[in-house]
């Protein structure tokens, strides 16, 4: 066979330096923005459905828990029961929606194959995460605020530490969106996508004191409940409303950050190894 590297150069004879492309600098801000905006646009297109479902669900919770149970349980720690469940309800929605939005956001392009474009783009894994997880977290924060607004129509709500409340809202939204993102990368079917939220997160949330304080549990159960990480998340959030807490605020923040770090580690590992993203 002849010289296999022989070539014809029919293009213009300019040099192969690509100054024009040296512009993708240390941070691909346009890329992050493109992903973020794309995810948000999908959500805004179905804003009605996106918000109506959680608002209706919340309203139902107030009817069932607030009115029906509230007539039996008057107050918890000096707070009317209807008001008491507000932080827990917000957390419950935040968990499920963060996970759903983020996992779906990355699973869907994997499923349709459009992920090829993100994988072939000059964008780092960190930037990909900021785009996808940032969008999912934004949706959750908005949702949390909408649910809080809805609650005002049903029960008196006070927020003793609004700044801390918003901070935790952001932190939890981001953490669970990151968790959902990892699930979306891991999942290989729509069933698997729902598996962890349904089988682990929802039960842990219901058992995690969303609608009661763990002090209301029998002593043995209380100790077991302390192994439930959700207890710490809800307790911290409830503190920002009523200064009521199951566990110390430091423990709450510690647990939240701890979970955030675990999720970060998992996602970083996934990108490093190309786990279920690349062949």
């Amino acid at each position: 066979m002849a010289d296999t590297t022989s070539t014809t150069t029919t293009g213009p004879t300019e040099s192969v330096t690509h100054i024009a492309h040296a512009q993708v600098g240390a941070f691909n801000a346009y890329g992050v923005w493109a992903i973020y905006r794309f995810q948000m646009a999908r959500w805004f297109r179905t804003l009605g459905e996106s918000l109506a479902t959680p608002v209706i669900t919340t309203a139902l919770y107030f009817v069932v828990f607030g009115s029906a149970l509230g007539s039996r349980i008057n107050e918890v720690g000096g707070v009317p029961f209807g008001s008491f469940i507000v932080p827990g309800l917000i957390m419950l929605s935040l968990f499920t929606n963060s996970i759903f939005n983020a996992s779906f956001g990355i699973y869907f392009p994997k499923f349709t194959g459009t992920i090829y474009e993100v994988l072939s783009a000059p964008i780092s894994s960190l930037e990909i995460v900021i785009g996808y997880v940032g969008a999912a977290a934004t949706k959750s924060v908005m949702l949390g605020l909408v649910i809080l607004g809805t609650a005002y129509f049903f029960v008196p709500v006070q927020v003793l530490h609004p700044v801390a409340m918003v901070a935790i809202l952001f932190l939890v939204s981001f953490t669970f969106s990151l968790f959902g993102f990892a699930i979306g990368i891991w999942a290989q079917s729509f069933e698997q996508l729902n598996f962890i939220p349904m089988l682990i997160v929802t039960p842990l949330t219901f058992l995690g004191g969303a609608f009661y304080t763990i002090d209301m549990l029998p002593p043995g159960w209380r100790d077991i409940a302390l192994f439930n990480p959700v207890v710490y998340l809800i307790s911290g959030f409830r503190w920002t409303f009523f200064a009521l807490q199951d566990v110390s605020l430091a423990a709450s923040l510690g647990a939240t950050f701890g979970f955030l770090l675990v999720c970060l580690g998992v996602v970083a590992w996934m990108f490093k190894t190309g786990y279920r993203l690349k062949n």
Binding site: N28, Y30, I123
Partner: peptide, 13 residues
């Protein structure tokens, strides 16, 4: 939208 997205993703103004 999809073509605009691609341009942004590749870091172009």
């Amino acid at each position: 939208d999809t073509v605009t997205f691609s341009r942004g993703l590749f870091g172009r103004a």
